[in-house]
Simulated scan of single mutants.
Amino acid sequence: MNFLDLANSRYTTKKYDSNKKVSAEKIEQLKEILRMSPSSINSQPWKFTVVSDEQVKSQLAEVSYFNEPKIKDASHLVVFSSIDDISRFEKQINDHLPEGSVGYYNQMLKPLSEAEIKSWLQNQVYLSLGFFLSACASMDIDSSPMEGIQPDEYAKILKLDGYKALFAVAIGYRNPEDANQPSLKAKFRLPLENVIESI
């Protein structure tokens, strides 16, 4: 299947088949795909927590508002977190990135306010989301990206020291009765001319 076909067929799954699990082999592939996600200056200011333990998944579901049923029935939950400690991030890039990347950070980002730097770090994590959702679609894995979580509660449950949970993605296999799937409910997108301009 080419990428356009994947874009047309993937959707945000609302109901999962709780009896179907993503294989360990595919989970390992997804972990490596997350590790290879793109980020500005190769900054990689993130942590990805892959949750399969049913008890932990249930605890997270209970602090995820209306997303609770999806999380409980999904095979896994992947939590996307950003470094929330600027000194920790600076040590990471000084230890691992080339001089040019560190120089860019020091010149362009370090003079900004703490809130602006953290916003930039969080934006990098969002870049990995599109990469991950596309990877899931290419592997015939259904997914549901969710900002409807309680970050502070996630941090407590997952012991996210120095990181802030931003959003989570439930993954697994759709329940055949999921009314949101494209075969039952046509996908809506604005017309191409409304969102694409060619110059």
Results as ranks from 00 to 15, higher is better:
residue 7 A to M: 15
residue 12 T to S: 15
residue 12 T to L: 05
residue 13 T to E: 10
residue 14 K to I: 12
residue 15 K to R: 14
residue 15 K to V: 12
residue 16 Y to Q: 08
residue 16 Y to W: 07
residue 20 K to M: 14
residue 20 K to H: 13
residue 21 K to F: 10
residue 23 S to W: 05
residue 24 A to R: 07
residue 24 A to T: 14
residue 25 E to H: 02
residue 27 I to Y: 06
residue 28 E to W: 04
residue 30 L to C: 06
residue 31 K to W: 11
residue 33 I to G: 03
residue 33 I to E: 11
residue 35 R to K: 14
residue 36 M to Y: 13
residue 39 S to F: 07
residue 40 S to M: 06
residue 40 S to L: 08
residue 42 N to I: 03
residue 44 Q to D: 09
residue 46 W to K: 02
residue 47 K to G: 10
residue 48 F to S: 08
residue 48 F to T: 07
residue 49 T to W: 00
residue 50 V to L: 11
residue 52 S to A: 11
residue 53 D to L: 01
residue 54 E to Y: 01
residue 57 K to I: 05
residue 57 K to F: 05
residue 58 S to K: 10
residue 62 E to R: 02
residue 63 V to Q: 02
residue 64 S to F: 01
residue 64 S to T: 06
residue 67 N to K: 00
residue 71 I to M: 01
residue 74 A to E: 01
residue 75 S to A: 06
residue 78 V to A: 05
residue 79 V to G: 02
residue 81 S to N: 08
residue 81 S to Q: 05
residue 85 D to T: 10
residue 90 E to M: 04
residue 90 E to L: 04
residue 90 E to Y: 01
residue 91 K to Y: 12
residue 96 H to N: 15
residue 97 L to Q: 08
residue 97 L to T: 01
residue 97 L to C: 04
residue 99 E to Y: 03
residue 99 E to Q: 10
residue 103 G to Y: 09
residue 104 Y to A: 11
residue 105 Y to T: 05
residue 109 L to D: 05
residue 109 L to Y: 10
residue 110 K to P: 12
residue 112 L to V: 04
residue 112 L to K: 13
residue 114 E to F: 03
residue 114 E to I: 06
residue 114 E to R: 04
residue 118 K to S: 13
residue 119 S to G: 08
residue 119 S to R: 09
residue 122 Q to R: 11
residue 123 N to F: 11
residue 129 L to P: 08
residue 132 F to E: 09
residue 134 S to R: 01
residue 134 S to G: 15
